[in-house]
Amino acid sequence: MDPEPVNFVTSALLPILLIVPLFDILSYIGLMPWIIKWVGRGLSAVTRQPRFESFFAVEMMFLGNTEALAISKAQLQAISARRNATVAIMSMSCVSAALVGAYVQLVPGEFVLTAIPLNCINALLVASILYPVPVSEEEDTIVTVGGADGGGHEVDAEAVARYEALPLRRRLVTRRPDAPEREPFFSFLGDSVLEAGKVILIVLANVIAFVALAALIDRLLALVSPGLSLEAILGVALFPLAWLLGLEPSTAYDMSQLMGLKLVTNEFVVMGQVTSSIGGLADHYQAVLTVFLTSFANFSTAGMVVGCFKGLVDEERNLIVARNVWRMMLSGVLVSLLSAGMVGLFVW
Rank of each mutant, 00 (worst) to 15 (best):
T141E: 12
W326M: 13
G279M: 04
L124Q: 01
S225W: 13
P134T: 01
D254T: 10
F62G: 03
I25H: 08
M60D: 00
S72E: 00
G344W: 10
I202S: 08
I202W: 06
E195D: 15
M255S: 08
Y131W: 05
A322Q: 15
R317K: 11
T301H: 12
I116G: 01
V87H: 03
G146F: 15
I19C: 05
M304E: 13
P132Q: 14
Y131M: 01
G150D: 09
P226W: 15
L216H: 08
A222M: 07
L106N: 01
D156E: 11
L14R: 09
R83T: 11
I320T: 14
L76I: 14
Q257P: 04
L244P: 11
L14V: 14
A165Q: 10
T114A: 13
R175G: 07
L14K: 06
R317S: 07
V224N: 09
K73A: 07
F56P: 00
S295D: 15
E67N: 12
G344F: 10
A115W: 10
V335M: 02
V87W: 11
V133K: 00
N65Y: 09
V173A: 04
A127M: 01
L281Y: 10
C308V: 08
E4R: 12
A115R: 10
P249C: 03
R82Q: 07
P33N: 00
Q77C: 15
G311S: 09
P240H: 04
S93R: 00
